[in-house]
Every structure is written in C-alpha cells, then in structure tokens.
Amino acid sequence: MKKKEILVLEELLGSNKKIAADIREKLEEKGILAINFLSSPGAGKTSLLERIAERLKPHYKMAVIEGDIETERDAERIRAKGIPAWQIITGGACHLEAKMVGKIFSEIPADLDLLFIENVGNLVCPASYDLGESIRCVILSTPEGDDKPKKYPKAFTTSDCLVINKIDLIPFLPFDLEYARKEALEMNPKLKVFITSALKDSGIDELVEYFLSSLRNLRQ
C-alpha cells in the first residue's frame, strides 16, 4: 500500500473570502457603501433599518438585502418605507454567504449610495462569513444582557461598529451600559459604539452620520 501525505494549507472559507473580495471591489468601484448587520434574533435590525430609511430616503439612494431562514416579512417592512429590498431565503442556513449576495449583485442599481445587509439572526455563524461589506455592524439589545460581547468574540472582534439598542428598556433591566461598552472595547478597541432606541427613535442620527461619513471616505 502506497501512502502519501500532502501539505495543503488552504483556508476552509477561502472560496467565500474570494467572492467577498470581488463583491467589495465592485461595490467600492461604484462608490456604494455596504453595511452588514449582525445580531441575535429580535435585537432590532429591521426596526433600526426602518428608522435609518426614514432619514436617508429624501437625500440618498439606499437598498436592503434581507437574509432570513424563512419568510419575506422583513423585506416587506423595508419596502413599505419606499426602499428597494431583496429577500434571500436561506432555507435553513443560519448565515448569509458571499455567493448568495453575489447572485443578486446584477440587480443592484449602479447609482446606489448605501446597501444594507440584514444577516440571519444569529451572533455566531454570520461572523465567519465576509459578505464584501465595508462596515460590519453588530447590534446588541439590552434584554440580551451586558455580558454578551465576551460570549460572542468573533462577532465583536470582527465588527467596526456596535449598536446597543433598546436603551429605552434600561430602567427595567439589570443591564450595565458602561460594563457592556467596556467588555466590547477591551476585545476591539477600534469599535465605534452607538446607543439607540429604534422604538423611541433616539440615537439614530449619530448612527446615520457615521454611515454617511464612511460613505464620504469611501468616495474620496
């Protein structure tokens, strides 16, 4: 019996990385800022997108890609705001992959300013998949607890910005805002932190301004 050992040294997510790099290059060429939203189910991704849409719609062209295991519901919520939205139904998969975004790439208008991607609600798996975004944004809602950053290190260390949402619920919860902020910044000192309530419509202006200044940087 002849045996042989070969050295491969290939990244297991290499094919996803390659497609993501291609998407990123094309988006940046067109001057489109892509933002990937990561969170647990129900943290408020769609609600935040609705608030962001209200602010951007009069002055900018935005679109949303919705990732969901089953329904078309979130895309409908976004369309109700007059914003184009594509629903990617993953059919059981717990995350979006770059090739899924790649498939609808040709439908994305070239004169778009901002492309938001709402990932499947899950703080673990989506963190391993680059989608070609320029900004990765992790959302933590206060009912989830202030100890989550250390429990989901991949999501928090690979993100550019952290949104702490449902801040209106703080009076009713044992959530220590400064502790959550400190835990996240310890793992990722470059993280930009925003405090919001999508329900009360607070803190959204700052977040939108961050996206717009990132868009200006991208186009410089």
Partner: peptide
C-alpha cells in the same frame, strides 16, 4: 483566527 486545511494523508492507487 485561522481555519485551515493543513494536510491530507492518502492511499495511492498504485
């Protein structure tokens, strides 16, 4: 941060 296939050991046909 790596997730790598390092090496494969196989049995050859001949």
């Amino acid at each position: 941060t790596e997730l790598l296939l390092e090496k494969i050991e196989m049995e050859l046909t001949s």
